[in-house]
Design a protein around this nucleic acid. Structure first.
Lengths: 65, 65
DNA sequence: AATCATTCGGGTAATTCGGGGG
DNA sequence: GCTGTCCGAATTACCCGAATGA
């Protein structure tokens, strides 16, 4: 359908943190480390793709070489 | 096509807000801050250019420098 | 004309950012 | 190496009543 990655449902840092049961700051570190892609608001806040988060949640132990 | 030189799809504040996963009020602040150009209805409501919004969304990682 | 959702405005909480240190 | 916490500053979210849009 859409080639745009922007047509994606986005999650806030706290929402992702709640799903993983970690601190929102930890999610930020994942984004900085490139383990999780982030879209920025015009104010610099991060938003995360729900599909990507769910995929990571579903895969028990995925190791990024 | 169109008889207009620049046929542009306009988005409402809530539509833009949904794409960025922010509050519509936040989009208004972006417009006030000049981060996003806005077209005004005759009643004063803002409309945003879809192409501009998509361009901003597709920016992978914008750094706050 | 009248309804209903949205978008004005402003003002005030809550969240997030970044860096740094445990 | 990874995570949780402290700090100040910036950004965003929710509150209201009134006006606009459809």
């Amino acid at each position: 359908m859409s080639r745009h990655s922007t047509e994606e449902t986005l999650l806030t840092p706290s929402e992702v943190a709640a799903l993983f049961r970690v601190d929102p700051k930890t999610v930020t570190r994942w984004a900085k480390a490139g383990k999780l892609s982030a879209i920025r608001t015009l104010g610099g806040h991060r938003r995360y793709r729900e599909s990507e988060v769910r995929r990571l949640l579903d895969v028990p132990q995925q190791r990024a070489v």
